[in-house]
């Protein structure tokens, strides 16, 4: 869906992108994460055909962004970080205008508008002026607008900024639904919990370059055998749990205190499930079990350290 190779873009006083590369498949929902000024917006603008790149190659759905921008625009929907909206238009008129701007012809045009109204939950407010909508509803309308021409790829630059929790939840649900429908999504956001919830992959970017996650466990096995961290909250005597851990080959306790245990097991989620089963069989009451590995916040901290802008 997206093929970016050694992309470079400079501004007068700064460098936007410095050799960034990315390959994204059509079934992915990729989160783009990085500090302010990392080049996320520049990257999305280049993909959206708004900015020309200085060097490197960018292809969207097989079309070169610089050579064939019109074809690229037919396949993507772009939502900028601060998206404007025509306040003095009615909701129906707003959608009709963009349906025409995407050259949709009847009856496809009518169907697309109805679908957009349905999707945004604004079907009964078609005659209302856009200015009367709250920020959350405006964001829904904007998302419905960029879906009018049924794009295969969505480029979302900080779509959740300024939204209240309910609107954010709705946005997340909608993105999950779209992803399930087969729309590839590249989303940039600073709200890591949202990205963690919806993304199939996270890409880190800083100073316009790809950033690899640093490994912070100094005692990690040298043969790079996969390990998984398990976080366990339990009730009952810790002697029992100690016995279970002792019976787990290769298990390494990272932290242990009253009713809490953090340990690393060789293997993956399958081994974590087996370990949980062993705990339950041993009669330990489990209050909380988390074996998802390091969270996105932890991964972000590893990737960028204390880097701030």
């Amino acid at each position: 869906m997206i093929e970016i190779e050694a992309l470079r873009k400079s501004y007068r006083k700064s460098r936007g992108l410095d050799g960034f590369s990315l390959r994204m498949e059509s079934n992915e929902l990729v989160g783009l994460v990085g500090p302010n000024g990392a080049g996320k917006t520049t990257l999305i603008k280049i993909l959206a055909t708004l900015l020309p790149a200085d060097a490197g190659s960018v292809r969207v759905s097989g079309h070169d962004v610089s050579l064939d921008p019109a074809c690229v625009r037919t396949t993507l929907g772009y939502l900028p970080d601060v998206a404007g909206i025509y306040q003095d238009m009615r909701i129906g008129e707003f959608l009709e205008f963009f349906a025409d701007a995407f050259r949709l012809k009847k009856p496809k045009r009518t169907a697309a508008i109805e679908r957009a109204l349905e999707r945004s939950g604004l079907a009964d407010r078609r005659e209302d002026f856009v200015e009367h909508l709250s920020l959350g509803w405006k964001q829904r309308l904007l998302l419905a607008k960029i879906l009018l021409h049924e794009p295969k790829l969505l480029l979302l630059d900080e779509p959740a900024t300024g939204l209240d929790p309910l609107a954010r939840i709705h946005l997340r649900e909608q993105l999950k639904r779209l992803h399930a429908e087969g729309v590839a999504i590249l989303i940039s956001s600073h709200i890591l919990s949202d990205l963690e919830d919806i993304c199939t992959r996270i890409v880190f970017i800083a100073d316009g370059k790809n950033v690899e996650e640093a490994q912070t466990t100094p005692s990690a096995p040298k043969d790079h055998a996969p390990t998984i961290r398990c976080e366990v909250e339990f009730a009952g005597a810790s002697e029992t749990i100690d016995r279970v851990i002792a019976g787990q080959p290769g298990a390494r306790v990272l932290e242990q205190k009253d009713g809490f245990l953090l340990l690393e097991l060789p293997g993956s989620s399958k081994e974590a499930s087996t370990f949980l089963q062993t705990l339950l069989t041993a009669g330990i009451t489990i209050l909380h079990f988390d074996a998802r590995g390091p969270g996105l916040e932890e991964r972000y901290r590893r990737a960028f350290g204390e880097q701030t802008r």
Partner: peptide, 10 residues
């Protein structure tokens, strides 16, 4: 900030 919407349309 509505120009981006126009420029990324057809």
């Amino acid at each position: 900030r509505t120009l981006a919407g126009l420029l990324t349309s057809l």
